[in-house]
Simulated assay, not measured.
Amino acid sequence: MRCTRIALYDIKSGSFDEIAAQARTGMVPLFQKSDGFVSYGVAQVDKEAFVSLSTWETHAQADAAAAKAADWVKANSRDRFALRKNYVGDLAIDIGSAKPVALAH
């Protein structure tokens, strides 16, 4: 069963656009090279917070992604944003688009 990881982050400094650009060049390739990767997205939920949404083939792969993300944030971005909460869960409904959404930022 596919699994999703949802991580809520607090923005500590800089703008969401800067953070999204950093995720695009750092986190995207890291996740794309990971076993079980299905999809990844980032969305600003308010002025001071954003979420990272990723989908994986298994719960274990989603858990591994959470560890990889934590290591990447620690090494690259802990002064810009910090993890508030991480959620991993099995998908009950998983309907997606075959075409990626254009980046808004």
Score class of each variant (00 low, 15 high):
residue 2 R to I: 05
residue 3 C to G: 05
residue 3 C to A: 11
residue 3 C to V: 12
residue 5 R to G: 13
residue 5 R to H: 10
residue 9 Y to Q: 14
residue 10 D to N: 13
residue 10 D to H: 11
residue 12 K to L: 15
residue 12 K to V: 14
residue 17 D to V: 07
residue 17 D to Q: 05
residue 18 E to S: 10
residue 19 I to L: 12
residue 20 A to G: 02
residue 21 A to L: 03
residue 22 Q to L: 15
residue 25 T to E: 09
residue 27 M to D: 07
residue 27 M to L: 15
residue 28 V to L: 13
residue 28 V to C: 07
residue 28 V to S: 03
residue 29 P to D: 10
residue 30 L to T: 15
residue 32 Q to D: 12
residue 33 K to T: 15
residue 34 S to M: 15
residue 34 S to V: 06
residue 34 S to K: 05
residue 39 S to G: 15
residue 40 Y to N: 09
residue 40 Y to G: 12
residue 40 Y to T: 09
residue 44 Q to F: 06
residue 44 Q to T: 02
residue 49 A to Y: 00
residue 50 F to L: 14
residue 52 S to Y: 09
residue 52 S to Q: 13
residue 58 T to V: 05
residue 62 A to R: 01
residue 65 A to H: 00
residue 67 A to Q: 11
residue 68 K to W: 04
residue 71 D to L: 09
residue 72 W to E: 01
residue 72 W to L: 06
residue 75 A to P: 03
residue 77 S to D: 14
residue 77 S to W: 06
residue 79 D to Q: 01
residue 79 D to T: 07
residue 81 F to D: 10
residue 81 F to G: 02
residue 82 A to R: 12
residue 82 A to C: 10
residue 85 K to Q: 11
residue 87 Y to C: 05
residue 89 G to H: 07
residue 89 G to A: 06
residue 90 D to E: 13
residue 93 I to C: 06
residue 93 I to S: 08
residue 93 I to F: 11
residue 94 D to V: 13
residue 94 D to I: 10
residue 95 I to M: 13
residue 95 I to N: 13
residue 99 K to I: 15
residue 101 V to F: 00
residue 101 V to M: 07
residue 102 A to D: 06
residue 102 A to P: 03
residue 105 H to R: 10
residue 105 H to C: 08
